[in-house]
Amino acid sequence: MVGQSAGRRALTATAFLAPSLTPLLLFTLGPMAASLVISLLRWDLLRPPQWKGLGNYAVLVADPDFHAAVGHTVFFILGYLPLAFIGGLAIALALNQKLGGLSIFRTIYFLPVVTSWVVVAFMWKWLLNPSSGIVNYALTLVGIHGPGWWTDPAWSMPSVILASAWKDLGFVMVILLAGLQAIPDDYYEAAAVDGAGRWARFWHITLPLLSPASFFVVVISLINSFQVFDQIWVMTGGGPVDSTSVIVLQIVQNAFSYGRVGYASAMSWVLFAAILVITLVQLQLQRRWVTYA
């Protein structure tokens, strides 16, 4: 404490920090550095690695499979993000009303968030079964011949998007609801006194003051979407005909199925860089649209 020598203080600090710092070094920071080195190698985990320099990155730039994976990931994000955000916002707005008995709805909407992806993927794969699924049956009742969903290359990604948005609605709802509840009532009252209608209040008070929470949701969801994997592994395994082969799936396949460990590492660094750049861009852009009260 006050009278302790610097050496003794450092000793105490070391004792408290060692249990977390050691594993962080061994299992996060160390592997991170190693990954950068491995990305410069040609290695199949069996034979001794060979130096390849930036070769893996050069191959990556020209690899049509990787381009396709980036395209599929972007497809996923463009479908999933608006669906989850607008759906979650609608639920949050409804739950923020002055009405009784709404907490049961919050419980229900949040249920899929705590359920593991494997279970959710099973549920949706079965619901969207092309021949015996209940969704296609329901569609026939209104005269629509349902698509082949996850068995059809044109519909496989929309199937994954649908399941993903369904699972994450509750997550978006909870964050936006917290944001809505942080908006002071006085603002609405003052606006009402000034003659602002419901729509004007939503547009000029709710949306701007909800922007910090929206920003948080968008940043987190984007980071997570770039890493989409679990649901795809279970629902489609990347197929049919690679139509849902996303970046992380290719990392895992290259590393653990094709014996291209260096190439997989290079891919993971490109993914990391993309996430970092997009997050930084968003932090810059937030000045344009995020209002801090």
Binding site: A6, A13, T28, M32, V252, V261, S265, L271, F272
Partner: peptide, 28 residues
């Protein structure tokens, strides 16, 4: 606790949160 390099070390902890798991999975 007060010790030298505390704030810098805390930043290192926070920085590890930015690393996607996929980056470390192969070496791990």
């Amino acid at each position: 606790l007060r010790f030298r390099g505390r704030d810098a070390l805390f930043l290192v902890y926070l920085a590890t949160l930015m690393i996607p798991f996929q980056v470390t999975i192969v070496p791990l």
